[in-house]
């Protein structure tokens, strides 16, 4: 019994320790971000690796999610004789929820895990140590550009996901099933509000970008410098950031769309 309690206590303290370290690390990233913007080339390179390399998966997934929404939404709406509202359904679900959330989940598994693995391997092969010994701060030179690359890419990817999704919904609803094109777009435009829906969606994806990038660089930096350590850290990145995205989504949704 005492052993169990001691074990539990140890678990809790080690979690808290990690959380504290992660927060301190978060501040350090901001403190040493000067280099990322003074030498924009470093950050652009990371935008390429996280953003451009995720383009295909984000766009294809967005298209399919939108097409499924079109099919399912039509099936449900036409029972109530309001198939014209399909545009509203597809656009609102994508812009408010699915766009930011699904794009962030995909981003975590595509780019987040890659960032963790890369930083973890650099640590395991003493590249970070070597950098430190060359009087170059690895947080400024390696971590911060990757963090900002992710933060910049995420909102753009989420917007692309939503746009592709709406196009997918249009393809299925209007082109395939034959919902009236005019009412599809006009009802959508009459209901979707720029500030209320689109800006809030972009804010969400920005927050998710910060979460995924933070978790990814931290797990990489904190990884045990061994092969198992790095693979464990990569898994943890995907799991932790996915859970954090969904939890943060709930909080943000409650704050943004409460009672409006």
């Amino acid at each position: 019994m005492t052993k169990l309690l001691a074990n539990l206590g140890h678990q809790v303290t080690s979690r808290l320790w990690r959380l504290g370290f992660a927060s301190r690390f978060f501040l350090a990233i901001f403190l040493y971000s000067g280099t990322s913007f003074r030498r924009l080339q470093l950050t652009l390179r990371e935008v390429f690796f996280s953003g451009v390399m995720s383009l295909i998966i984000i766009m294809v997934s967005g298209l399919f999610v939108g097409m499924v929404l079109g099919l399912q939404g039509y099936d449900t709406l036409q029972r109530y004789g309001s198939a014209e509202a399909l545009g509203i359904l597809v656009a609102l679900s994508l812009v408010r929820e699915l766009g930011p959330v699904v794009a962030a989940l995909l981003f975590a598994s595509r780019a987040g895990s890659a960032i963790t693995a890369e930083i973890g391997l650099m640590k395991a092969t003493e590249q970070l140590s070597a950098m430190e010994m060359m009087a170059v701060n690895p947080i400024a030179r390696v971590v911060a550009p990757r963090f900002w690359g992710g933060v910049i890419s995420m909102p753009l990817l989420a917007a692309l996901f939503s746009a592709m999704g709406i196009f997918g919904g249009y393809l299925v609803g209007v082109v395939l099933i034959g919902v009236d094109e005019g009412s599809f777009w006009s009802q959508m435009q009459a209901t979707v509000d720029f500030r209320e829906d689109i800006v809030n969606g972009i804010i969400k994806s920005f927050v998710f970008g910060v979460i995924v990038s933070w978790v990814a660089v931290f797990e990489g930096y904190d990884a045990e410098p061994t092969a198992e350590g790095v693979s464990g850290a990569t898994t943890r990145t995907v799991v932790t950031s996915s859970l954090a995205i969904l939890a943060a989504d709930f909080v943000l949704t409650a704050l943004m769309f409460r009672g409006v």
């Binding site: 650099m122 092969t125 003493e126 070597a130």
Partner: peptide, 8 residues
């Protein structure tokens, strides 16, 4: 460093 630690 032991194994060089070149930036890969």
């Amino acid at each position: 460093f032991q194994f060089g630690a070149l930036f890969t």
